[in-house]
Design a protein around this nucleic acid. Structure first.
Lengths: 199, 199
DNA sequence: GACCAGTGCGAACGGTCGTGCTTTTATTGG
DNA sequence: CCAATAAAAGCACGACCGTTCGCACTGGTC
């Protein structure tokens, strides 16, 4: 990896952490440059525009999520173990695990930042990421059906959406309300959801 | 109502609509003044600071929510009818009802905008609003228990949180993913939740 | 007719934003 | 080791931000 790619990478690491706190719109080239102890123009040159920086952050975040959440889950045996690991890692990602971002799940922040946008590269990216995630969940659930762990009548798409809602509720309760019972409640909801599809 | 209060009110009406799209941080005095066809300084004088404007918008939004969602629900008979009306109106508020904001539920936007803030008047207000809402739901649920419609063992607080999560999931699916099945899925989840506590 | 509080406007401020140039410094391949 | 190239800095720009301040206009009261 060349020097340029290396600094670009470390800029993105800092930018991602910062974005999770203040959103993709909230980050500034100047503020980022100061945190990196380099000049605005030098940092700017790596991305060409602010939008270029934002989309790069989203790509970087998607990679991190895949590595930290998806991949550990896919290493588990099919069906319930895989689903449980996904849930645990996902909860950690959006919460306070050691691998979590300082401002929680960035996709949730970006989603509510860009949900009313007519279109644009950033919105497109976050939609794609969420769709992929829902797809992954559905595939895992269907794998469990194939294995005979879950009922034949399981609606995988509905399950994926319900699971997403649980995560959103957890982020809300934990991050905004500082509810100490947030994680336990999310776990309960997940267990109930799982009971519902178990055969 | 004096002339000043009148303009202040119509400014807040526009500011609320604008905030639901771009967030409380996204609104600008200049943009708001242009939309109102008045001068920046004239508009500014009504609120003293941008933070003053933001907190005023939150108060205005809380009033609107009470009037459009809470009040119609409390007019219904205790228990399930009251709960169903609350859900319907709430779904409309965050979705595409005629009384909805153009950018969806502003509290969700503000929540993810300010969830990592250390403190501050705006954050305090949105937390208060959400706590009040959860309290209201709990009270309604407990009313249903008293009436014998819901089981004695019902955990009202858990129900309120689960209902909130359903709304968050709906907003996410509808506003970001433009999922046509979002409302139906939310309704399904609500029915399941209700079944679970019915005696 | 003079006063007066309420209301809004216009101009200007210091600051920060993203971005374009040119120049200097660092890295890299032969 | 040196030339070619990549990376970073320096500097300036126009635009917009929230905010301040003085002034003009309005309606009602002595």
């Amino acid at each position: 990896m060349s020097k340029g790619d290396e600094t670009r990478d470390s800029v993105l690491r800092v930018a991602l952490a910062q974005s999770s706190r203040v959103g993709l719109r909230g980050i500034t080239i100047g503020g980022l440059a100061e945190a990196m102890e380099m000049s605005k123009s030098g940092l700017f040159a790596h991305f060409g525009s602010k939008e270029g920086l934002q989309t790069a952050v989203m790509d970087y975040a998607a990679d991190a999520f895949t590595q930290l959440v998806i991949r550990p889950a896919l290493k588990e045996p099919r069906g319930e173990p895989r689903l449980r690991t996904l849930f645990d890692r996902w909860l950690g990602w959006g919460g306070y695990a050691d691998y979590a971002l300082p401002g929680g799940c960035i996709f949730i922040s970006v989603a509510s930042e860009y949900d009313d946008e007519p279109e644009g590269p950033v919105r497109t990216k976050v939609v794609q990421i969420e769709r992929d995630l829902l797809d992954t969940i559905e595939t895992i659930v269907r794998g469990g059906v194939t294995e005979g762990q879950f009922r034949e009548s399981t609606d995988a798409a509905a399950f994926a959406h319900d699971l997403l809602a649980i995560m959103l509720g957890y982020a809300f309760s934990a991050r905004l309300l500082h509810d100490p019972a947030a994680a336990a409640r999310a776990q309960d909801a997940f267990d109930r959801l799982l009971d519902h599809i178990r055969s």
